[in-house]
C-alpha cells in the first residue's frame, strides 16, 4: 500500500526538464502554484492547463503515469468538490429537499477541482523529473539565506536525503518483522480497522528499536568519515546555472504575465 504512492518518485528520462537546475524547477513549481491562485476566470485555467500539458510533453514522462499520482488524493478532491458544491450560499439553480446547489457553488467547486488537480500534477511533475538528491541540494541552496537567522538548513537537507535512503530499508524490515510474526500466528488480515491497527503495535516496537540502532550506527559511520556538519564541506556535484536555466526563467516570467493578463478578460 505504501509502495503505490507515485507522488515524490523519480521517473528517469533524458529531457530538457530533467536537465534543468533543481533550483529553477523548485521555484518554477512554486510560481506555478501561486499563479494558480491568481487565476480569476476560465481563460486563466485554460492557459494554466495548456502550459502544464506542454511542459509534460517536454518532460517525456508518460501522461498516464502522471495521472496515476492523482489516485492518492482522489478522496481529498471529492471532499473539496462536495463541500463547495453544497455549502456555498447564493442564487440557487437546483433545489430538492435539503440539497441546494447554487450558481456560486458550482463555479467554486469547479475552480477548486481544477486548481487542486493542476497543483498536484504540477508539483508531481517536479518530483518526477528531479532526483531526490538534486531536490535536497536545490532546497539547501534556495534556503541558504535562512542560515543567517540560524536555521540549520544543511542539517535539514542531510536529514531529508538520509530519510530517502532508508525508506526502502525500513520497508523491507517491516515486511520481515510482519512475516516473522505471522509465522508465529499473528493475524494482520482479519477483523475491523481497530483490531488491525492494534495488531500493528507489535510491529512498530521492534521496528523503532531497529531504526534507532541503525541511526546510532550510521552516526558513528558518518563521524568516522569525518562528517562534521556543513562548514568547510565541498560538493561532489555542485549546482551550476546554464543557459537553459535562464531561458526557463524567461518562460516562467512570461507565464506569470499571461496569467495576470487573463484576469482582465
Amino acid at each position: 500500500m505504501i509502495r503505490d504512492i507515485t507522488i515524490g518518485q523519480y521517473y528517469p528520462a533524458d529531457s530538457l526538464l530533467h536537465r534543468l537546475d533543481p533550483r529553477v524547477k523548485i521555484s518554477g513549481t512554486l510560481l506555478y502554484i501561486i499563479s494558480l491562485f491568481l487565476v480569476k476566470n476560465l481563460w486563466g485555467y485554460l492557459a494554466a492547463a495548456l502550459v502544464l500539458a506542454a511542459v509534460i510533453r517536454i518532460s517525456k514522462v508518460p501522461f498516464g503515469y502522471i495521472i496515476k499520482g492523482l489516485k492518492a488524493v482522489i478522496i481529498l478532491l471529492l471532499f473539496t468538490v462536495c463541500f463547495n458544491l453544497f455549502l456555498t450560499s447564493g442564487t440557487p439553480v437546483f433545489e430538492w429537499k435539503f440539497i441546494r446547489i447554487t450558481k456560486e457553488g458550482l463555479y467554486l467547486a469547479f475552480s477548486m477541482a481544477v486548481r487542486l488537480t493542476l497543483l498536484i500534477l504540477g508539483s508531481s511533475l517536479m518530483t518526477f523529473t528531479t532526483t531526490p538528491n538534486e531536490l535536497t541540494d536545490g532546497m539547501e541552496s534556495l534556503l541558504s539565506p535562512l542560515k543567517k537567522i540560524h536555521v540549520p538548513v544543511h542539517e535539514v537537507a542531510m536529514m531529508m536525503s538520509i530519510a530517502l535512503r532508508f525508506i526502502p530499508i525500513l520497508l523491507e524490515e517491516t515486511d520481515k518483522i510482519m512475516k516473522a510474526q505471522q509465522a508465529r500466528g499473528a493475524d494482520f488480515e482479519t477483523g475491523g480497522i481497530i483490531k488491525r491497527a492494534k495488531a500493528m503495535i507489535p510491529i512498530l516496537v521492534p521496528l523503532f528499536i531497529s531504526a534507532f540502532r541503525r541511526a546510532g550506527d550510521l552516526a558513528m559511520a558518518m563521524e568516522a568519515r569525518c562528517y562534521h556538519g556543513g562548514a568547510g564541506r565541498t560538493k561532489m556535484k555542485p549546482l551550476h546555472y546554464h543557459r537553459r536555466d535562464g531561458l526557463a526563467w524567461v518562460a516562467m516570467a512570461a507565464f506569470v504575465a499571461l496569467i495576470i493578463a487573463s484576469r482582465k478578460f
Binding site: 536525503s161 558518518m222 568519515r225 569525518c226 562528517y227 564541506r233 560538493k235 561532489m236
Partner: peptide, 15 residues
C-alpha cells in the same frame, strides 16, 4: 549514506 554509489564514495572527500 547516499542513494547513489558514486555519491556515497564522494561523501568522505566532501567532508
Amino acid at each position: 549514506i547516499a542513494t547513489v554509489v558514486e555519491e556515497d564514495v564522494g561523501f568522505g572527500p566532501e567532508n
